[in-house]
């Protein structure tokens, strides 16, 4: 029973990781940029979720607003921060992105205060009985269902629609894709929009789970998401999904069995380093 519970907690954490890390993988696959500032959009999403829900009382509306606003902000980030330095060596955008991220954390602290915000009426706080004595919180069920649904929709979009095909073609080879008449610029904007909207949705979901948003809520996911996309093999979407769930589950078991030796983050990064030493290209990356 304990195992099952730990496993499900791991899946819940893993789904959140997946939503955040997907956007990072999309950006990396297309532009070879480690987009650390991605987690700032996760935090922004969380704040918008709480603010809009408290103002209107509708969590669904809050989710929509958070996703659209963060999507647009994400496109702005690409336009003003990354596009001018695309040709530089890889450490340039990486450092620029870290700079943006730590500055944004401070901005959140200045604008919204250091103590964080909560929902006036915590949504979905009831329990759902599953079988026997085993039950989950409504919010936890929402996290699992919604993240699976969004990932499934994204998968369908990229496999079956013209836009999805254009996107995959651009990732595979930008030059050939553009000679077939695909507007690369449009694909990049779309990429940032979708990735950032997914991160925002994760922010809203975490805000519901913890009933708290705070300025630093993005820091741990930000570094973890980097670990995840490296673990999965940079740029590989299936690898990222596998790594997210694997990391979620390993952390959840690890904190019980190795918790008095190293903390949760250390467990995650120990796993990352072990995997990379054995498979330098990541779990599902191409050599």
């Amino acid at each position: 029973m304990l195992y099952l519970e730990l496993f499900i907690q791991g899946i819940i954490q893993g789904s959140i990781y997946a939503l955040i890390a997907l956007g990072l993988t999309l950006v990396y696959g297309l532009l070879r940029i480690l987009h650390v500032a991605h987690a700032a959009l996760f935090t922004l999403g969380g704040y918008l979720g709480v603010l809009v829900t408290n103002a209107t009382g509708s969590l669904a509306l809050a989710m929509l607003v958070a996703m659209v606003v963060c999507g647009v902000v994400g496109m702005g980030l690409y336009k003003f921060a990354y596009e001018p330095i695309l040709g530089s060596p890889p450490f340039v955008p990486l450092i620029a992105s870290i700079g943006l991220f730590i500055a944004s954390e401070e901005l959140f602290r200045m604008i919204f205060g250091p103590y964080g915000l909560s929902y006036a009426v915590p949504p979905l706080s009831g329990q759902v009985a599953l079988f026997g004595t085993f039950s989950l919180r409504q919010a936890e069920v929402l996290v699992i269902v919604l993240s699976f649904a969004m990932i499934a929709i994204l998968g369908w979009l990229s496999l079956k629609t013209r836009t999805g095909i254009a996107w995959r073609a651009t990732v595979a080879d930008p030059e050939i894709a553009s000679s077939f008449g695909i507007d690369i610029q449009k694909v990049r904007y779309l990429n940032f929009f979708i990735g950032s909207a997914l991160a925002a949705s994760a922010g809203v979901l975490v805000a519901v789970l913890n009933n708290l948003v705070e300025p630093t809520m993005g820091s741990v996911p930000s570094y973890k998401a980097l670990a995840i996309i490296v673990l999965g093999g940079l740029g590989s979407v299936p690898g990222t999904l596998a790594a997210s769930v694997a990391l979620g589950v390993i952390e959840s078991f690890g904190t019980i069995y190795a918790g008095n030796f190293m903390d949760r983050d250390a467990i995650a990064f120990a796993f990352l380093i072990l995997v990379l030493m054995a498979r330098p290209q990541g779990l599902l990356g191409k050599a």
Binding site: L226, V230, L234
Partner: peptide, 22 residues
């Protein structure tokens, strides 16, 4: 010697977290 560029940056970041975590 095993990993390079972006992979190395993330690995060293992991070393940092591992250190304070331990």
């Amino acid at each position: 010697l095993r990993v390079r560029h972006d992979f190395l940056a993330i690995t060293t970041m992991g070393v940092g977290f591992l250190f304070i975590g331990l």
